[in-house]
Simulated assay, not measured.
Amino acid sequence: MTRKPSAAGPASAKGAATREAILARSYALACRNGLEGLTIGLVAEQVGMSKSGVFAHFGSREDLQLSTLDLAGELFARDVLQPALEARRGLPRLRAIFANWAGWVRHEKDGGCLFLAAASEYDDRPGPIRDRLLALEAAWREQLARAVQQAIDAGELDASTDPAQFAFEMYAIALAIHHDAGLTGYVGAVARGQRAFERLIRGYAPAR
């Protein structure tokens, strides 16, 4: 006997789709205005819903902000880390991560990097949003350090290399690209960043 479809299925799917649409718009707004510029009313207006409709999916402004930050983390992992995992462990994967990271800087459609904006907004503001941002940042540093360790294990970086230090320096180059891309132009910023990254790799090359 064929089971009759549950009435909750389509409704649940519609609710999930609505939530995704709200988050997508919220993310775009936050990239331009920062998380502090994000309000239930603004998002409701942008997606053509009532405030109560948005509240049905996000119980508070902070909940919306946290969910938006989580979405940013998912998008970053999708565009930067996941494609790089197809490259061989070691320097090829590190280079792929860096290239994808440099591509993430472009932000021609969404207006900016939410993580940089959030870091400026919440660096000295204790609370759940800062805690979530720190957790996302720590997870990313851990991924970078793991990729560095794999390059060490492959003999492509010196055995004395500190993975956390290498990740810190790699992060610093990425931040410089972010800074210059909007002020002096993306192409030049990425070119300088790539040269700096290759110099970083040479600085940690195994002793011959």
Rank of each mutant, 00 (worst) to 15 (best):
L200Q: 01
W101S: 11
C31F: 03
F58K: 00
A189Q: 06
L157A: 03
A72C: 08
G53F: 09
R93K: 14
L69R: 06
W140R: 11
S120P: 01
G15E: 13
A87E: 11
K51G: 00
A7R: 15
L183E: 14
H57L: 05
Q165A: 11
A207I: 15
L38D: 07
Q194F: 05
R19S: 10
R130H: 12
A196P: 08
A145V: 11
L116E: 14
A207G: 09
A96L: 04
P92E: 11
R125N: 09
Q149P: 04
K14F: 07
V190R: 11
R61A: 10
R130N: 09
R202E: 13
K14A: 03
P163E: 01
I40R: 08
R202P: 01
D124F: 14
K4C: 01
L29I: 15
L42W: 02
L183I: 05
A167C: 11
M170Y: 00
S52G: 09
S6G: 11
G37T: 09
V187I: 03
D70K: 11
I152F: 02
E121N: 05
F168H: 09
R208T: 10
R146C: 06
D63Y: 02
F76P: 01
S52L: 05
G103Y: 03
Y204R: 12
A72E: 11
R95L: 02
G185I: 13
A56C: 03
A181T: 02
A151W: 03
E86F: 06
S6E: 14
R199Y: 07
S50E: 00
E169A: 08
L94E: 04
V54M: 06
A28K: 02
Q143K: 10
A28W: 00
G193I: 12
V190E: 08
T184D: 10
Y186H: 13
D158G: 12
A159M: 04
A174W: 06
D123A: 09
V47D: 00
R125C: 10
G127K: 01
R125A: 13
C113L: 13
L42V: 13
G112Y: 04
T184P: 04
D123V: 07
K51P: 00
T2G: 07
R125W: 08
R125H: 14
I129N: 04
P5M: 10
M49E: 07
L144C: 05
L94T: 14
P126W: 06
A172H: 10
A56S: 14
D153V: 15
P126S: 11
A205M: 10
A84S: 13
P5I: 08
R141A: 00
L133H: 02
L114R: 07
A96M: 07
L38H: 03
M170E: 08
G111T: 03
A205T: 13
R125E: 10
N33P: 03
L23W: 06
A196H: 12
Y27F: 15
E121Y: 02
P83W: 12
L81A: 07
A176Y: 03
K4G: 02
Q65I: 10
I177Q: 02
D158T: 15
Q165R: 14
R195V: 15
